[in-house]
Design a protein around this nucleic acid. Structure first.
Length: 223
DNA sequence: GCGACAG
DNA sequence: ATCTTGTCGC
């Protein structure tokens, strides 16, 4: 699929901050895509050799039946350290290599991490969204920024995630009695629509099927 | 200044 | 993210 390179990846932390602040202005948090959605994708990362090697994986599933239709895995040297607030600079380079090889362009991409629920409203889902110019959703396994009320134990219930007096995402229960996930808009999709698609992609487990498939691909010892 | 801190 | 067995609970 097509990738729109917006900047180089050889950056200092100060330059990375400048890029986040500049590109943030281009993020769209409203629905801007045509339905019906036919394909959904999930991306995930794995590491080897104490983090020196990155493994990126992409899984494209049909929607709404969620059957595997395309996959891609790439391995390359890791070029940026993990620093809270700058996850995208560590993971996106490899993810783009993997996405470039995908033959089916998905209609929505689920990312492992936050969207606008980020200190500068520019988490990995937003960053990736601008590079692929497709709807992206951040589905994180843990809280990064913001606070929220307690939420019911039933699947489908959710509470707004508030940060600096703004709703930046939602805490969503995707399975009864199981730890919730943190959903936020990445690009070209609203929060309520994002929640709807996350629920439609989590028929059985806590995380979206797309992410689960990508996760096992990125974790496999093979190449 | 002191903690907290997506993966 | 990754290093790792058994174990508690439905």
């Amino acid at each position: 699929m097509k990738i729109y390179k917006r900047h180089s990846w050889d950056l200092s932390l100060d330059e990375a901050v400048a890029i986040q602040e500049k590109l943030q202005a281009e993020v769209i948090t409203q629905d801007q895509f045509k339905e019906p959605i036919k394909y959904v994708a999930g991306v995930d990362m794995g590491f080897e050799d104490d983090g020196r090697i990155s493994r990126a994986a992409v899984a494209v599933l049909s929607f709404p039946d969620l059957e595997l239709r395309d996959t891609s895995i790439v391995k390359r040297p890791t070029s940026f350290p993990y620093i809270p607030g700058f996850l995208s600079f560590r993971e996106i380079p490899a993810l783009l290599d993997a996405l470039e090889k995908i033959t089916i362009t998905p209609d929505i991409i689920f990312c492992d991490g936050q969207g606008i629920a980020h200190p500068r409203r520019f988490g990995i889902a937003c960053h990736l969204g601008l590079f692929v110019d497709l709807p992206t959703v951040g589905v994180a396994k843990s809280l990064f920024v913001g606070k929220h009320e307690e939420l019911p134990q039933t699947r489908g219930s959710w509470q707004p995630l508030i940060y600096e007096a703004e709703t930046v995402g939602a805490v969503l229960r995707t399975r009864d009695g199981v730890k919730p996930v943190y959903v936020s808009s990445g690009h070209r999709i609203s929060l309520t629509t994002a929640i709807d698609y996350v629920l439609r992609c989590t028929p059985q487990y806590r995380l979206p099927e797309t992410t689960r498939v990508a996760d096992r691909l990125a974790s496999s010892t093979k190449d």
